[in-house]
Design a binder for these strands. Structure first.
Lengths: 109, 109
DNA sequence: ACATTATGCAACCAAATGGTTGCCTGTCAA
DNA sequence: TTGACAGGCAACCATTTGGTTGCATAATGT
């Protein structure tokens, strides 16, 4: 059960990795060293997080000499929004209304 | 770092839990027993998954006699879409264009 | 040429995760 | 009133996760 969608969800499940995506969104093309400066952990730990992001296709890497430049790939996040979240956004207000109704029924007895 | 957003992302990181949300989206008010029927694991394991979904506020529970009824709460998913994914959707095409450009530069040398 | 910089790779570790089994409790129906 | 049904709780287990340290290697600047 490690399909593409699952890799993306798992990659997004860590606050450190979400921070990395935030930083790459703010400024693309950052080196590993630059990204490490923001993360309170060793370079090797950051590398592991970036590896998961790459495997989920959320980040693409371009080597330039001895430097590893990182770029955000917006496609997987878009697909999650479209294919998965969109499904729940449809009928959202109805679901919310039913939830409220059921919670009130409980209160009534 | 276990704020609300993080709880939701972590809850969504498991395919079994996403399936539970799918099923509750399709038919709300299901009992634990009904939900267990779909999951190839013990009732106790399903209970643990549902607990995480409840803690993330993705699922609300109403007891009816000896049965535990589960309802989808669409609010957290909506907030993730608005507050987090929306940020990346903005400027999505620009990011994609830059990514392509950088990948081509690499190919050129 | 050589020291420094940027990074990779592997072994190791603690804690969290995802599952199990076994047993207990409360509710319903015959 | 008693048995079956719906579910809770706790202990336990294997694997994964998220981090570390130590060492190796390739590119760069002086």
């Amino acid at each position: 059960m490690a399909d593409d969608l699952d890799l993306v969800f798992k990659a997004l499940a860590d606050p450190g990795r979400r921070l990395l995506l935030d930083r790459l969104h703010a400024e693309s093309g950052q080196t590993l060293g630059q990204l490490c400066a923001l993360m309170e952990m060793t370079r090797q730990a950051v590398t592991k997080h970036l590896k998961l992001l790459e495997e989920a296709n959320l980040v693409a890497v371009v080597w330039k000499g001895r430097e590893k430049l990182h770029y955000l790939n917006p496609v997987p996040i878009h697909e999650i929004a479209e294919r998965w979240i969109g499904k729940f956004e449809k009928g959202r207000l109805e679901a919310l209304a039913e939830l409220k109704r059921k919670l009130e029924e409980k209160a009534d007895g």
